[in-house]
Amino acid sequence: MAKTLVLGLGNTLLGDDGIGVLVLDRLGDLGPEVEVVNGATGGLSLFETLKGFPKVVVIDAVEMGKAPGAIARFSAEELLRLPVSRNFSLHEFGLFEVLKLGQSLNEDFGHVIIIGVQPKQVLHLESLSSEIEAKMPEIVEKIKQEVNYAGSYA
């Protein structure tokens, strides 16, 4: 089994929300130790996907209130510390809930790093805005750095 999971999330029919999925095609061969998975709009099913990888790199569009294309890196622990309140339904069961469920069940998800990209527009559109498209090489580079990082996360 591969040691690292690269997981792209998003909906390619919703403009910049698709960045996490679309960037996967630009990664090239990352070697046998890396598994690349298109998680698309998966909810609870991601729970099973995340299992068993010592390291997970998630790419997703994240609303951070920053300039379009801004890239942020944060860990699952940091994400889970954010105060979040929202209605529970499966349509809203996303990465946050999966990580929270994993935490509650003491599931060992290894080390999860999230690379968040600030979208410009999330609307019915099958293409990325130019600001996000222009950031693609930089996002690819960030993913590779993360995958190749051999140090300790502690």
Binding site: F88, K100, L101, L105
Partner: peptide, 10 residues
């Protein structure tokens, strides 16, 4: 939701 349930009844 199921999340607090996971903590109390894993």
């Amino acid at each position: 939701s199921v999340i607090p349930l996971a903590a109390s009844h894993p």
